[in-house]
Design a protein around this nucleic acid. Structure first.
Lengths: 124, 124
DNA sequence: GCTTAAGGTATCTTTTTGGATACTAGGTTT
DNA sequence: AAACCTAGTATCCAAAAAGATACCTTAAGC
């Protein structure tokens, strides 16, 4: 590991904020989506948030924004070629996250079960 | 990738919040540190924040808290055995972050250079 | 000539996060 | 008896992030 961890934080910037992971997920899955399609795919997101997150991803060269000059407007978003390189990292994070969820449930479900057993014993 | 991305968010929870990466970095590097040693290693962090971050890491079974019953108090923090398994993921994030920083600087430094060249051309 | 459409921006309010400061316990040192 | 030590809590306040809502554009359709 490095002397400081600003690089980890850089990686994190790409993913923090409640919406970026799911935006990336949608774009990785569907290839190309219009603004309104993304909005529909992300129940509860506001235009402001969606715009802000997409602009950050665009700045970082992860997402490409293609504007069609027509009215009503049409804008399509997709993962850039460079952005595709994030795939393995996202996959690794997803894998770790998956097994971590299981770890947590084993950890705390067992506590819960133990408490229930205890409670049951007291009733007797 | 999975149907939703809550697992990625789980992975992120372990790392978001300005302090967790550097706390983990210190503990991975040094093995075991007292509360006050961590505080010294993290210039600017308050006790409140340090405590909060450590408690979250402890809840997730990433960090172990060992209390010595003595006065003045002594508490040592270290990465759990389970937590060590995060090492490769942290490394992968660090690697991606490192190369991404370079990518960004290439992207935007070249713009700057191009602008400077343009400006120079206009002066002639 | 009013409405609808898409992709936003502007403004305000709420929520979340982080920080500053003061306080605690109780044995040891001065 | 006062001061110091460590590992915290408690309370209050500021800053940042997120959300709600209204508004803009310009062409087409009714």
């Amino acid at each position: 590991m490095e002397e400081n961890c600003s690089t980890v934080e850089t990686a994190l910037e790409m993913l923090v904020g409640k919406w970026k992971p799911v935006i990336l997920y949608q774009l990785f899955k569907n290839g190309t989506l219009r603004f309104s399609e993304l909005q529909r795919a992300l129940p509860g997101i506001t235009k402001k948030m969606l715009t802000a997150q997409l602009r950050e991803l665009e700045y970082h060269d992860i997402v490409h924004r293609k504007i069609y000059m027509q009215i009503p407007p049409k804008v399509e978003y997709s993962i850039t070629e460079y952005g595709l390189k994030m795939g393995p990292l996202l996959q690794a994070m997803n894998d770790w996250g998956t097994s971590h969820l299981q770890h947590l449930s084993e950890l705390y479900d067992e506590d819960r079960k133990a408490e229930q057993a205890e409670a049951a014993a007291e009733i007797k």
